[in-house]
Design a protein around this nucleic acid. Sequence first.
DNA 1: ATGAAAGCGCTAACAT
DNA 2: ATGTTAGCGCTTTCAT
Lengths: 343, 343
Amino acid sequence: MSKLKQGRATAYDVADLAGVSQSAVSRAFTPGASVSREMRQKIMKAADELGYRPNAMARSLITQQTNIVGVAVGNLINPYFASALEELSRQLADADLRMLLFPATYETSITKIIQYQVEALIMLSVPPGPDLVEECKVCRIPIIMFNRSSDDESQACILGDNAAGGRMIAAYLLAGGHQRFAFISAGSQSTASNEREAGYRAYLLEQGIELHHREDAAFSVENAAGAIRKLMLLPQRPDAIFCANDHVAMIAMQVAQSEFGINVGTDISIIGFDDVPQASWPGLSLTTYSQPIAPMVAATLEVVEQLRQGIEPDHMNIVPGSLVARASARRPTQPVRSPSIRG
Amino acid sequence: MSKLKQGRATAYDVADLAGVSQSAVSRAFTPGASVSREMRQKIMKAADELGYRPNAMARSLITQQTNIVGVAVGNLINPYFASALEELSRQLADADLRMLLFPATYETSITKIIQYQVEALIMLSVPPGPDLVEECKVCRIPIIMFNRSSDDESQACILGDNAAGGRMIAAYLLAGGHQRFAFISAGSQSTASNEREAGYRAYLLEQGIELHHREDAAFSVENAAGAIRKLMLLPQRPDAIFCANDHVAMIAMQVAQSEFGINVGTDISIIGFDDVPQASWPGLSLTTYSQPIAPMVAATLEVVEQLRQGIEPDHMNIVPGSLVARASARRPTQPVRSPSIRG
DNA sequence: ATGAAAGCGCTAACAT
DNA sequence: ATGTTAGCGCTTTCAT
């Protein structure tokens, strides 16, 4: 029935060799199916001999589930996204799910990805284009936003606690006795950056303090370096700088130190957001607010599982973080007023 | 024939709606098939109405090609691997190939990945375990090694020019008037590190110079920091340090500067390998030998294409790099003797 | 517990 | 140029 020798061995080949029916082979490879021990052994022996491996495509066709989720990535130079991706690859594998990765900026890609019947789409901190959203709607593929908010109630968002983090950072810097507060944004299209900024400014304002200066570091290292340079050259140089994420903060530290001879942590304070692995490197020691990757990815997988079971997940899933005090910002001598209590 | 309304629309649904045969629908979605303009329009209209998208699983089953390649990743904290992955995602998409990503360290993963009939497996700088190799052999899935050598002639390797790079770095440091040459390895299981070290030592030896000291920075930031600390505390401190890759070199720079107050580039010279994006950051300015990502990924895709066409690719595919002189190593005043000419 | 048969959604001959 | 038919490799009733 099957040619063998050329293509891969099929369940029929195994069945023939073992002298059983093809459906018996299927059962032998299905956990919890009703097969006798001897039958299973006979089949496994034959399968082994032929190097048989079940064909997931054929199985998906009939079971109507592929166990594949699509993942859209953008800028992996930001170590937070790289770490998140790595953790995602592990937790998906743990959950017996496969990951189909594609570059978010390729509009055409999504069409191809959808054809593989992915069960969900995870946007790794990248915005979904309008065509992507439309495609997914038509094909009933749920979109999950990792580290990005969305107004669309149908999209589940997994977020760090941006507002609380922004407030906490303001409180920490204020308690550290700083005077002139600056903010470096990661771009107005970054919802995370915007939410962090809002929390930061809100807390300051509640204490009667206006933001001293604001810069934008969107899109490139050059822009980030330019932003910090502008701050350093201000007639009234800020003494406290909150950078929208660690990636920007690390660039800011480098530039401030190397180009302006500034001792970060004493001359000025720089705080980031994310707590990327590099933040704890010796010599960098970046004070930051954590977005713990393992829990955030775990929350993402929980949403995936809910979706697969037909359960409607929460629209907003906020994973708490905490301030990680290191050397890049002067440590307060007085206790920090908890910023979660407003006013 | 088809229920519709519940699952996704199939080619039959479209055919029914358009009043044509199902194979006509198939042709309408197959580039270069013989369909009249009016027929195609009619079909596309119906397809649009139903939100029909061809099922790649079903297609793969019959065409016997999935257009999927598996990619195994390990440590994405090293920005070289993260950048390579990002570029790979783009070039695969350009080649109309899908990427199934999985964590290399999960032995069980490979079994699952293979079931999706991947057409090749790319190991992104990670060693394939013996079971993985065996599995791939049984299933006739070709293994491609990115940034890693293999003795197995059946595995195509895409490599930077490690030997030439190691030699070039030695020559550059020597021309810079350095005296005591150290090397920090990325671990003995890293073939790239070993090859770079061999080239470095060989050139030095040819000039009658023994390696002053050698350390190992395998596996973790802590080990890398420990390695550079040992070097700094040596009674005879080295003045030239070649780190097996930029990731290690960046850690070394940080530690040397922050913990030992050393001015890298004047007090001592540190050179890395890879030319990761961060190497050119202001303030870091790491001298390094490039492993150009786009060409290396392009070479990888060429191998993939050859494999898909049944052509046996070269076992070794070495992509040339070049020394990128920046500020972390003292620049030679005399011309550098070309190290590619031995002796 | 096992086998026979139907069919998942598609492509690829083969007719016409 | 279009329709008919036969599978791709598997799971899943349904018999037995």
